[in-house]
């Protein structure tokens, strides 16, 4: 297990010669993604700020998707998930993803509801 590494990333389009080369390749990729995130965070292009998709700014969608991409490569290549059995991979990843998605969904809906209550009721909070 420990010695047979899966050396292909991006669904097999990029294959490295050694495990060390793969580590550096993933590092370069993660750095590029981080630089894109920071650049977008500083520039904040207006067209991404104005457009919304499912009640969220496009810019924030980009940030979250890029974060999940980074999380995937950290887990798969740095934490060797790529080399583990699929049963271990699934029991770790899907358990966490299911519970976290559920918690986030519930809490964000509730938070938005309380915001509406604060905004539309008759008690004045701004004093």
């Amino acid at each position: 297990m420990a010695h047979d590494h899966n050396l292909a990333i991006f669904r097999g389009t990029l294959k490295f010669k050694s495990n060390v080369a793969k580590i550096w390749g993933v590092f370069v990729f993660l750095s590029i993604v981080t630089i894109i995130e920071v650049a977008l965070g500083i520039v904040k292009p207006a067209f991404l700020m104005d457009q919304t998709f499912l009640a969220m700014k496009l810019l924030n969608w980009i940030f979250i998707i890029l974060t999940l991409v980074k999380a995937y490569y950290i887990t798969w290549d740095f934490m060797h998930m790529r080399d583990e059995k699929s049963s271990l991979r699934r029991s770790v990843v899907w358990t966490a993803i299911f519970l976290i998605c559920y918690l986030v969904l519930i809490l964000l809906i509730e938070g938005d509801y309380i915001y509406e209550v604060y905004r539309n009721n008759y008690i004045k909070f701004n004093f």
């Binding site: 964000l108 938070g111 915001y115």
Partner: peptide, 21 residues
């Protein structure tokens, strides 16, 4: 531990949505 952290971050999201303005 990931669930603990996501609890923190989700409650951050909750409070942010609550006082979003």
């Amino acid at each position: 531990d990931a669930l603990t952290f996501s609890g923190f971050l989700a409650s951050y999201g909750f409070s942010r949505f609550k006082f979003v303005d």
